[in-house]
Design a binder for these strands. Structure first.
Lengths: 225, 225
DNA sequence: GCTATATTCAAGTAGTTTATCGAATACTTG
DNA sequence: CAAGTATTCGATAAACTACTTGAATATAGC
């Protein structure tokens, strides 16, 4: 009977390895970035605001829980998700958090109140208008994420290079920007900058994953801008 | 720009609330039990081998992450899952752990080596034979779990009361026992006891949840034994 | 109102773990 | 070998962990 207890304890300890690795906000953010595209330590550190050494250690934690994999490419070490199921688990976690923790909605609403007029556009009407060409859809994430996968019909206009592309964007037509998802602020920033210059810009809340879940078309590896 | 960092940090902190609550083996075990049926603190403490005070504290942690709910019923406080999605998240976690952490398979195999001949029976052939009546399927979990939901056609024979039911079990026919799932040892124990008495007993690895996922029929609230 | 029972609370302990930093080290490429 | 990238080491301070003990609270039945 004591052997049973020991068996159970060691099994649940293994399960807990995964959730322990997920129990740090910074690691969740790292994983979230890796859901979009694979990346080097340095880049991940910059995107999350961590020191390189610190980011590296967080990444080791995730790796020893077998959630991500590392591959050496020349000078860089490229990290990527170890399994598609990791993405699913992460989004299940996010979904449950959104549903059960009302604080998240509060925080989001508060944030959007500081950026007035940025309520997300409706997904269904958007889809219709993208199809008919009545709307220009732009993906404002870094180019490597666009390449890894983007909504069909979207143009690749990373936020950093927004100004370069201004003359190729229509002034009279609606422009809809999207990024990594509801908690990524790239699209918010993009819309604000575009509006300041007189464009009719709006924000799509979804990211590529949400779009894909709905069975909507995704393209990859075709960097047409 | 600093506001963006703050926003992200507080969002990911909320997500981490959930995974922090899941990061303890004992809490995972408690949740696992609550996936089968709602229960009082005292019972949960006994089943997990925790002191009542300690179990209560773990339950508070789960509750403050909104994963479970408490309801006072007379002297007892009954805990239950707060949402179906909690079960899904838990099983997603388990699934990923099984797939990625080979240690789990090792531990399980090692455990089964100490209980020879207890390899689980095949789910598909079982189903056929249950339907045709060539097999007696028994649910050896506590009665309250059977009532909350059991595989269609299974008889309620809690492990504690196994001996009481012996004379109503067939000696010439195969008996298949199941419990909470692959890491619950009730069925293992049941099969060993039955075999010691000359029954042709086998073990089904699945629990109710796995059965349900396969779209197979579940019954509830009909305590026919 | 008294008593038995179930649960929670508060406080304390001992041990572990955490995130983080800066410097040292290892590796790769030109 | 020089420059750039990543990991490791050592150390720090803080925070947190699971758990125990004993008291407090709540409820039901007598």
């Amino acid at each position: 009977m004591n052997a049973n207890r020991k068996f159970k304890d060691s099994i649940y300890e293994q399960f807990a390895r995964i959730s322990k690795a997920l129990s740090s906000p910074k690691r969740l953010e790292l994983l979230d970035l890796l859901c979009q595209a694979e990346r080097s330590v340095e880049l991940l550190a910059k995107l999350t605001g961590l020191s390189v050494a610190n980011a590296s250690q967080h990444l080791q934690v995730l790796r020893s829980a077998r959630l991500i994999e590392a591959e050496k490419q020349g000078l860089f070490v490229i990290y990527r998700l170890a399994d598609e199921q990791v993405r699913d688990l992460l989004y299940a976690l996010r979904g449950l958090a959104e549903k059960r923790l009302t604080e998240i909605e509060h925080t989001t609403r508060q944030f959007l109140e500081n950026h007035p007029g940025l309520e997300p556009v409706d997904r269904d009407t958007l889809r219709e208008r993208v199809r008919s060409g009545a709307v220009t859809l732009i993906d404002v994430r870094p180019t490597e994420e666009y390449l890894a996968g983007h909504i069909q019909g979207a143009r690749c206009i990373p936020l950093d290079e927004l100004e370069k592309h201004l003359d190729r964007l229509p002034k009279d037509q609606e422009i809809v920007a999207y990024c990594r998802g509801p908690y990524c602020v790239l699209a918010v920033e993009a819309v604000e900058r575009l509006r300041a210059r007189g464009f009719k810009a709006f924000r799509l809340e979804d990211g590529v994953y949400e779009w894909q879940l709905l069975g909507l078309p995704i393209d990859a590896e075709s960097p047409a801008a």
